[in-house]
Amino acid sequence: MSRDRTPLLALRQVVKRFGAVEALVGVDLEVRAGEVVALVGDNGAGKSTVAKIVAGVLTPDAGLVEIDGEPVTIGSPAAANRLGVATVFQDLALSENLDVTQNIFLGRELRTRQGFLRDLEMERVTRQILQTLTVRVPSVRTPLRTLSGGQRQAVAIARTLVGEPRVVVLDEPTAALSVAQTAEVLTHVQRLRDMGLGVILISHNMTDVRAVSDRIEVLRHGRNNGSFEATASHEAILAAITGAA
């Protein structure tokens, strides 16, 4: 993989404070097209803060966020979407009482000029997205509450593709999933990379991280504390996470 390509998304010396607490201190992060970058670290390392800055939920106090090498301001989730950045947080933000298609288009429903829902077109697009990600559900009209945890995570990932993003951030996508469901979700992560997207994978599970990542970035106490190829030893990465390195 070429390292001289301009990153799709980059954080340059990003700082974020909450009162007297420094959640991020000069953090750097890059993700390129067709690359899965894992962001790992203990609780409180700053991983979720990075995700929220990229998603437009939080604004950095210092430093730069760049898209295609150009500084940008991501002032809201809507701004992030316009810039081609989509984030799936742990709570998924899905509605149990709605079906798969309704969840995929939740808040972005397609309508006619008269205001009627374009149901057939939304169903068609949903099938196309699910097929692209190799997501298997009984039907695009299956209620979300009847799906497994892995299928729900897959729907949340599929939902990001409605906005045609270039970068997808996944916050602990395999948490609380079975081994089989985890394998399915990791397949979807690989499909995002195969589609040429940049992926930031936030996870505590080093087995998952090493299975799909091209590069592993370690945060410790809000600071960068190591950058590793996915082939690096588990011990070396763990040492960076715990501060033993």
Score class of each variant (00 low, 15 high):
D4K: 13
D4E: 15
R5N: 14
R5K: 13
L9A: 12
Q13T: 12
Q13F: 06
L24F: 03
V25H: 14
V25T: 13
G26L: 12
G26F: 13
D28F: 07
D28T: 08
L29I: 09
R32F: 03
G34H: 07
V36S: 04
V36E: 01
G44D: 01
G44K: 01
G46D: 04
V50C: 06
A51K: 08
K52S: 05
V57N: 05
L58I: 02
T59S: 09
D61A: 07
G63T: 12
L64Q: 15
E66Y: 07
E66I: 10
V72K: 12
V72P: 03
S76H: 10
S76A: 12
R82D: 13
V85D: 00
V85Y: 00
V88T: 04
I104W: 06
E109L: 09
E109V: 13
L110T: 02
Q114M: 15
G115L: 06
L117D: 02
R118K: 13
D119I: 15
Q131V: 05
R136E: 15
V137I: 10
L144I: 00
R145K: 15
T146W: 05
L147F: 01
R152K: 15
R152M: 08
T160C: 06
E164V: 10
E164W: 00
V168L: 06
L170V: 11
D171Y: 09
D171G: 12
P173S: 03
L177R: 01
S178E: 00
A180C: 03
V185F: 11
T187L: 12
V189P: 02
Q190D: 14
R193T: 07
M195C: 08
G196W: 01
H204Y: 14
A211D: 12
I216M: 01
E217Y: 09
H221E: 14
G222M: 11
A240N: 00
I241G: 09
T242F: 12
